[in-house]
Design a protein around this nucleic acid. Structure first.
Lengths: 100, 100
DNA sequence: TATATATTTAGACAAATATCTAAATAAATG
DNA sequence: CATTTATTTAGATATTTGTCTAAATATATA
């Protein structure tokens, strides 16, 4: 089971994804427009978009042929709260029996 | 080249490490005391400690046989600032030439 | 100094991740 | 309806990561 918290931290762990978020701060963009700004294939970027979507850090909207990516506007609040809660329970994943 | 920002986000991406930080919030502990709280070997934990140290999220002090781990007290300020700067330049790593 | 305790380091390995190319899907337009 | 453009999906691969066991290092103490 993957907590929302975990998916957000994972998403933020990659510099390309943080950079995508930064770009989107200036305004929503289509996948293609974002792609112009990054030195990798659209397929690779699509993977990153998906990670950001799973973490609910971005939202999408189809506009004709294009898909427009936007920052989830609650992202900062969420992240701030997440920091406050950084140290709240999030390690249920570790509930295994002790080895050795 | 790995920015300080990158090392912090990477460090926070693992739930065990976030949990270690949470534990240390309540007060400094020796590596052994921390180990009592986690279902993995001390070797594995030592690896996590090292990631946290590289990110400067924890500090260490030897006390006799023991090594005491403490939260770097500036951690919250740093993380808050990091959030503010989340969208400032951090993708120098991506400066490659465009494929295809 | 020998032994016990605490912690880290080294090396191996499986799982996860980031990237690629090629193919598939979706919408617009001639 | 065929073609073009936009984006995603599928599958492959190299790298990174989290974990383990075993060995090494450091300190304390009999």
């Amino acid at each position: 089971m993957k907590s929302a918290q975990q998916s957000v931290f994972k998403a933020l762990a990659d510099p390309t994804r943080r950079s995508i978020l930064k770009v989107l701060q200036k305004g929503s963009l289509t996948a293609g427009d974002i792609a112009l700004k990054f030195p990798m294939t659209r397929a690779s970027l699509s993977h990153h978009f998906n990670v950001l979507k799973v973490a609910d850090l971005v939202r999408t909207e189809r506009r004709g042929q294009h898909i427009v990516y936007s920052l989830n506007t609650t992202v900062f609040q969420e992240m701030t709260q997440m920091l406050m809660e950084l140290f709240a329970s999030d390690a249920e994943d570790n509930e295994r029996s002790k080895p050795q």
